[in-house]
Design a protein around this nucleic acid. Structure first.
Lengths: 166, 166
DNA sequence: TTTACAATGTCAACAAGGCTGACGTAGTTG
DNA sequence: CAACTACGTCAGCCTTGTTGACATTGTAAA
């Protein structure tokens, strides 16, 4: 790799100005990223926190409360406030763990799955439009940079999520 | 561009699974993105909202309250609570507009600029590490996708920010 | 010049969603 | 049995967002 100052392999992309642009891109893009689900949730007594819980329960059905806690990075009190409403409204159900009966394995109900679909359809539509506009090469780069930006611990969550049924 | 199903120009990158990975990448990366400034701010009576205000005032000195309002996308009451503490603590100063005396043109004081530097040094360090790990091509793709993900109105802010001194 | 509008600040009340600390109840395990 | 773990819960606090109403000052148009 030639590190000449004029080619595309130069380090010009590391200037403070380039970095600032990246920072602002993250800020503005994240707003867009959450805008559509937020619109769906608004007025139905749920918020972004409910969305996140629903997303990851859908993603890894049978997940325990404490692994969800680890992924979301919030306190159990905070998560519990959210989960309680989801239980009460019949969107999520907890099944007692088979081997360890202290665990509560989380699953979406049909109703919960329906909301998950509505939310993720909206979010995927935006993501799909962005991906399509940018093209496969850009998408590859996008994911590479984001992954490098995560805390290592979260990077493990990101890569390692899978169906959680022991 | 050949849209054959096997080459790198295929639309495989638009599968729901790929989109979900992008969604989770945004979620986890944004956490990393804000983690370092949050650590600096914590315990000094400021939060993310103060960081955002300081960032954009630094970015476009002389900016009016209402354009800051537009960029941040919050209510004036919410912004005012933040700005008030920044005035009181001598991090930001407001100068009456030259042509329109109703305007308050916002500037960082030396003290404010020092905090801005500390915050953005931390954030840039992470961004730089991610950029360096990913390489120029990836960075290009990263920015392209993020830009496509913004709301059009915010995209204008992102591209159009400049020194705001009429 | 009055009259309407614009830019800003402010008070009050409220909600979401974070946090800490303390405590309780089951179930597991050494 | 003792110690630890998984989970739930009460209480209280903080930041940051919201709405609605109202005041001040300056600009601009009729």
């Amino acid at each position: 790799m030639a590190d000449n100052a004029s080619g595309s392999d130069s380090l010009l992309f590391l200037t403070d100005d380039q970095l600032r642009k990246g920072i602002e891109a993250m800020f503005f893009a994240y707003r867009g990223f959450t805008a559509d689900p937020d619109r769906i949730l608004e007025g139905m007594d749920y918020g972004r926190a409910h969305h996140r819980a629903i997303h990851f329960i859908h993603r890894a059905p049978g997940m325990t409360v404490s692994s969800l806690l680890g992924i979301l990075g919030v306190t159990k009190q905070s998560l519990n406030r959210v989960l309680r409403t989801l239980f009460d409204d019949g969107l999520v159900e907890a099944r007692v763990g088979k081997t360890d009966k202290r665990e509560r394995r989380l699953h979406l109900t049909d109703k919960g799955a329906a909301l998950e679909r509505a939310l993720s359809d909206a979010q995927r539509a935006r993501m799909r439009a962005a991906y399509r506009a940018a093209g496969p090469q850009a998408v590859q780069g996008f994911r590479t940079v984001l992954e490098a930006m995560m805390d290592p611990e979260m990077r493990r969550n990101y890569q390692g999520l899978r169906e959680d049924t022991p």
